[in-house]
Design a protein around this nucleic acid. Sequence first.
DNA 1: CAAGGTATTGCAAACGTTTGCGTGTTGTTT
DNA 2: AAACAACACGCAAACGTTTGCAATACCTTG
Lengths: 341, 341
Amino acid sequence: MQSKPTTIKEIAQLLGISVSTVSRALHDHPSIGLTTRAKVKKLAGELNYEPNQTAIFLQKGKTHTIGVILPELSEAFFSSAISAIEDTAYKKNYTVLLAQSHDDELKEKQLVEKMKNHRVDGLLVSVGKNTSSFQHFENLKKYNIPVVYFDRIPNIPNIHYVACNMEIGTIEAVSFLLKKGHRAIGMINGPQTMVATGERKEGYIKAMTKNRLKYDPSLIVSCDLTEEGTKKALDELLANKRKPTAIVTFNDYVALFAIKYAQKLNIKLNQELEFVSYANLPLINYMENIPAASVEQFPYLQGQKATDILMDLLHHQDKGSNEQSAYYKIIIESQLIENKK
Amino acid sequence: MQSKPTTIKEIAQLLGISVSTVSRALHDHPSIGLTTRAKVKKLAGELNYEPNQTAIFLQKGKTHTIGVILPELSEAFFSSAISAIEDTAYKKNYTVLLAQSHDDELKEKQLVEKMKNHRVDGLLVSVGKNTSSFQHFENLKKYNIPVVYFDRIPNIPNIHYVACNMEIGTIEAVSFLLKKGHRAIGMINGPQTMVATGERKEGYIKAMTKNRLKYDPSLIVSCDLTEEGTKKALDELLANKRKPTAIVTFNDYVALFAIKYAQKLNIKLNQELEFVSYANLPLINYMENIPAASVEQFPYLQGQKATDILMDLLHHQDKGSNEQSAYYKIIIESQLIENKK
DNA sequence: CAAGGTATTGCAAACGTTTGCGTGTTGTTT
DNA sequence: AAACAACACGCAAACGTTTGCAATACCTTG
């Protein structure tokens, strides 16, 4: 019952011809006669022949597989990105080898090794929160395994990446609130250590100066992104001498925490206090009390672009120009989207 | 600059010994002298030797890779499951090859082929909504590739699966509402075609009869799971001669649609009308108006169990007993969880 | 010192495929 | 009729490992 998969060798034997002829026939090599070609294909069809990829991998040195390492699969942002990656890779006939680092630098390193051993053709990476050294990724260059970073990118030169610039979206967000008449606009920002925190702050300041308004540092508070931290941050803002009438929050989680808390404080949403956030929760649509607008970060698009770049890199490394000087640096502009309710 | 990965052959040459000795030395084969063993390992370390897995795959006929095919990566339920699968597989030193079918039967078939060609050792599958034939999966048996289904399992005999039984959870859900004093309990169920719809209905009926209450069929309405459909279903229930004071909804999406709509109708939640749902959205925690309780389906646990089973199958197929008569049929009991607000 | 044993190592096949090159068989051309 | 293309196919190496078996060296024992 346990039929082993058919091999090229068996076909050759059954037909009384050589394996090379069979191989070539299956690939429509011109030097094979039409009759043998037909014979081979017929038998191959009947025997349900499927080429053994592992053998081809070994032979060609290419696996047609790309590795993906990201922090957390179950996070909405990443699951959306991985969905895009799989879709895009599938179209180009690549397969996806998946792994999550759980934001653990050590595990990340091990995963890189594993990917290397599996001989993935290329790697897509969103680096962990705590990753401080990127040597384990950079080492891959030596083995000619291209790496494309996305979303959470390391701050080092000479890399390919696609990321979303939060600054533009933030400017839009603040401008949106200004246009609605708000003057005291608060911001619940993330931890100082994150790049994203800086981008948001910069965007905030730029939006203010652009509109010839003075920037009040006391209106930006940082937060550890937990529910408790959010409450504290909101308290802090509300206690400010210039009590904000609108708040930009670091992300949707923070926004929802803040909204929930604001309701408990009997604050009238969208009247006394309006929120704008950064989108990372897909189901904003299912809820009633949501931020007035969200800065979209396009996870699907990011995954798609990153995969496209990797495919491009893989394609071009064969033909000449192994000395690459150009690096893909794709910045997707974040974009403010007003939430319909 | 482009250093090719070190091979066993190079080590052998450099040390003036044979490849087989190097191979054995690296595997701590007892027949290799301690001195050579040390020499080999030292050099291997210096040269950063990493075994070429593709070669090992070919040689051993095992890839230490499992394939995962599921409908939609970006859905919370599946992203949670895949997270579990990856975690579990990683611990056993397996790698995950990932693909999504987008509920497309044809693509599902192609993916199975692809997985087979990649010579995955085993397959984890949650079948697509529209899949009617399961032959493409069953064919894998011939090639000795075990398949474990999870969550969305086909209704055929002789398969391994892990699924969540909705009946118990539903009984709990209805009982929960009965205990709270509700007597007219409505249900917004799914399409008649889905297995899950039947299970919910059965659970509902059993809960009623168990409590010696008569079952009123007009209190169960089906719904296509869209927002519009949900509104219609709710209208229908509210127009019933016995207007329900509580409703069990097919899933969280439906619940949120219904809750949103109910608020628009100025119905006082938890007083006039109470909801219980089936959990598939993780961020219920971030919202104010949520179902009073949810039937948990344990996606992470399902993914974990399914992977464990597959690992077990893979382990035991080597040693004897290739004639397997026993099939794993793991039913995880769904469980009602009261939502704290 | 010969015999036997043991510890160490090498040889070569195998996994399934691709591919450069060689070889034989036709057929065409002069 | 000889020479030469063109065509069709086979041989064998290669990809990097593992592993059964053979072979060598060394050591012990009688």
